[in-house]
């Protein structure tokens, strides 16, 4: 029986939620071909048999490494893939997944598909954006094993009732090691993973007005902050928040573009969002051509009203 191998992403001893989406995608692939799903954490972590089983895993292997080594982890994944005859290795298209996919493919002497938004089990054929989403390509990997990373918010955990079998495994050592992870802004999700995003641009007038965006984000659970390239280049906001072709490509359920005119490189990074709300004082701004809902007017006047109304809703 063939195997789909999912690389779990561990932070602070726990499996990150984005890995449950990858498990769901693996489950769908496995059910189509009669394969089993092995989930692998290359470092020690708390693995919940019921939770990971429900998301789609049949077996869970937990490595012995105390710390993440980028090259060591890839070697562990390649070894487990070979031992189990994996036909497919799936990761989340996160900072870690992007780091790992090429290494794993190199060790398995194959190719990979990065940041996939859909998988057709026949092939399998992977659909992924290129040019930051200005086009989509479908690729097939002609080798015994395919490696692919999957974008957040595009695949769902399996949601079945099943318990995974948890086993331990050894970890390979490497020549590099993560020595520290420092968390930034308290509690707010990262713009690349969030299901809801509010981004600001030059129309906010200056960095001193960002509290208006933050107030809106505070009223909506799980809302992340984003920014246009113009305001990042101007030093108003950190690069980690930049949405667009030289920043992060996002596809949340809900995207607010506030005071952002809609340059092509910004549109490339967010136009696959499910619902786009544009707030801009220029009714001719290109962003309105891409918005589901538009409000014409001054962001500094509209944002406080938006925050007030959202607070009244008491969203959980």
């Amino acid at each position: 029986m063939s195997t789909i191998l999912v690389v779990l992403e561990v932070r602070d001893g726990s499996v990150r939620p984005v890995s449950h989406e990858v498990l769901g995608a693996a489950r769908a692939l496995a059910d189509e071909s009669g394969a089993s799903v092995i989930a692998l954490a290359t470092e020690t972590c708390a693995a919940d048999a019921a939770h990971l089983g429900a998301a789609g895993a049949d077996r869970v292997l937990v490595g012995a490494a105390e710390r993440h080594s980028p090259d060591g982890a890839a070697a562990t994944v390649a070894r487990v893939a070979k031992e189990n005859g994996a036909s497919c290795v799936l990761l989340a298209a996160t900072a870690r997944g992007r780091d790992q996919q090429g290494r794993i493919a190199a060790l398995l002497d194959t190719g990979f598909a990065s940041d996939c938004v859909a998988i057709d089990a026949k092939g399998p054929v992977f659909t992924r954006p290129v040019f930051a989403g200005k086009a989509l390509i479908k690729v097939q990997i002609h080798a015994g094993v395919a490696v692919a990373s999957l974008r957040a918010n595009h695949f769902a955990p399996a949601g079945r009732t099943a318990e995974a079998v948890i086993e331990s495994c050894s970890s390979e050592s490497g020549k590099s090691e993560v020595v520290e992870i420092s968390a930034k802004s308290a509690g707010r999700p990262d713009v690349a993973e969030a299901a809801r995003v509010i981004s600001g641009g030059r129309g906010l007038g200056g960095p001193e007005n960002w509290h208006l965006l933050e107030k809106v984000a505070d009223a909506v659970p799980g809302m992340a902050l984003g920014a246009s390239r113009a305001v990042v280049d101007a030093g108003w906001r950190p690069h980690g928040e930049q949405v667009g072709q030289t920043g992060k490509t996002v596809s949340p359920e809900l995207y607010f573009a506030v005071g952002i005119s809609g340059a092509i490189q910004h549109l490339a990074g967010m136009s696959s969002s499910k619902v786009i709300v544009a707030i801009n004082r220029d009714k001719e701004a290109p962003i309105f051509q891409h918005a589901t809902y538009g409000v014409v007017g001054d962001a500094l006047e509209i944002l406080p009203a938006l925050a007030d109304e959202l607070q009244k809703l008491g969203l959980q």
Partner: peptide, 15 residues
């Protein structure tokens, strides 16, 4: 898409 309205007055309809 569509323009919902202008200014803060459009917020309740947007929500």
């Amino acid at each position: 898409g569509r323009i919902v309205g202008e200014g803060a007055a459009a917020v309740p309809e947007l929500l």
